[in-house]
Design a protein around this nucleic acid. Sequence first.
DNA 1: TCTGGGGTCCTAGGACCC
DNA 2: TCTGGGGTCCTAGGACCC
Length: 433
Amino acid sequence: MYALVDGNNFYVSCERVFRPSLNGLPVVVLSNNDGCAIARSNEAKALGIAMGAPWFQIKHLAEDAGLVALSANFALYGDMSDRMMSLAAGLGPAQEIYSIDESFIDLSGVKGDLVERSHKIRARILQWVGIPCGIGIGPTKTLAKLANHIAKTAERKPGVYPDKLSQVCNLAALDQAERDAVYAATAAGEVWGVGRQISKQLQAGGIHTVLDLMKLDPATVRSKWNVVLERTVRELQGTPCIDLDHSPAAKKEIACTRSFGRPITEQHHIAEAVTEFASRAAEKVRKQHSQAGQVLVFIRTSPFRKDAQYSRSMVTPLRHPSADTTCIVKAALQGLNHIFKQGFNYAKAGVMLLDLQPDTNQQAELDLEDGDSEEDRTKLMTAMDTLNQRFGKGTVLTASAGLDGMRREWSMKQLRRTPAYTTRWDDMPVARA
DNA sequence: TCTGGGGTCCTAGGACCC
DNA sequence: TCTGGGGTCCTAGGACCC
């Protein structure tokens, strides 16, 4: 048996912990550059604001409906997440942290009433951290996910499901008739692993609800669609196909990409951005004790504009796998040189480290150049990471990122377009819990 | 013009997730 | 004017080999 514990409207809930006056108001948290909504309070959802809705399209709701928009503060959310996760872990013997606001808990061997136990954990998270959660329980991860959706929907929209399923829903505790009623009331597209495309195809085939989907023959699903959907159907039928991932493996790719606050045309400005992305990615790869075999850099114009479009990427193999910032930045800039073309309004760029492999010391030595000793290099990288961690990202950068200092043209953090609606955590005179 | 059979590896692209 | 960022898995098809 599995449980899924999921924070409600997570980023918004985090902000509300420190600003209770936001309770009851429609609130959204905006992405980088205040580009679009990445979290919405229930009140904001009720206004019809979609996930990912561009700010400029919903901006009018600030005046019309009292919508409050906040710039994202990911450091805060990460911190709140850690606290929530450590309490959620108390639900069972093993936990898989699936995302910043969700974790699966293995419930095998847990005695007693699972629903009661879940309500207690939920209350503890609410009291100690301040985040409201939904908890779903089922015999497979897909069913636990579904149960979680039901628990949250039952709370948010009374009447759709039986009231007793609000906040905590254990599908295994329902009788067959109740379960079928719940499945029949849920669209197939709500199932974990069924996205927009598959959902459309299912509908065309007359499969509308979860009940319809789970009645399909897995073999037929495989031949008509693919193994991924087959697994989903089996999981809905109660056969576990997706195990709990106890200690997630090291990442196979690491990316650092951003949209720019406004279009960029000059190569040296993109080069600064790429240098910072590469540095950031190198930090991440060192943190997981890996090395990259290849460095990919990409640049692109905005697909939303009617401008001339251009989008290219380039993979530069490293002579030896490396996690050295200097080496990775160099490769990224080399790639950029090859793909950059004058005359376009660039909207986004990024660096990805590919072909990641475990760090091995003897290879590090081969990366050295220009007389630096291996020891010096390692010290330099460690010092950079420490400084950037202590004093904030961007405190220490390699040369080409620092040239323009405070006036980086591509910066995401330049002018807030909506100062009245964007309060950063840093600006707020509130004590941390 | 006709044109084997089988294997591996890599890449691009599609679909999904939060 | 203004549209997030970071991942995973699977498949098809091409390149290459014997």
